[in-house]
């Protein structure tokens, strides 16, 4: 896992990502004004996850870094997901 971080991300890429993020923000606010019932939280979380992923991959250079970093991040998020899912094995099925 030697380091080959010679990749310098250009300003253009960053600005493009930023524009996408702003668009997604506008989207999530717009969607929130409709009543989608139980779906509104799902949509909001999906949009937020896409935004977070963009920030991590481009702004935080995960896309260009060594693979080990992507594995680490996956492990961390997976752990958090498991904590949440297992906790809800109690709450979702409670009488």
């Amino acid at each position: 896992m030697e380091h080959k971080n010679n990749h310098i991300v250009g300003y253009g890429t960053y600005i493009f990502v930023w524009l996408t993020l702003v668009t997604l923000t506008a989207l999530t606010v717009t969607v929130a004004s409709f009543d989608l019932g139980g779906f509104s939280i799902v949509v909001a979380l999906i949009i937020a996850s896409v935004k977070a992923l963009l920030v991590m991959l481009i702004f935080m250079h995960l896309k260009f870094d060594d693979k080990i970093f992507r594995i680490f991040v996956a492990v961390a998020f997976l752990t958090l997901m498991i904590f949440i899912v297992l906790t809800f094995s109690d709450y979702s099925f409670i009488r």
């Binding site: 752990t79 498991i82 297992l86 094995s89 109690d90 709450y91 979702s92 099925f93 409670i94 009488r95």
Partner: peptide
Amino acid sequence: SLVWAHHMFTVGMSDTAMWI
């Protein structure tokens, strides 16, 4: 890391959580 709720078997969790 996945077994914490076995400290809570008497608190009245859902049956699903109990067996998992």
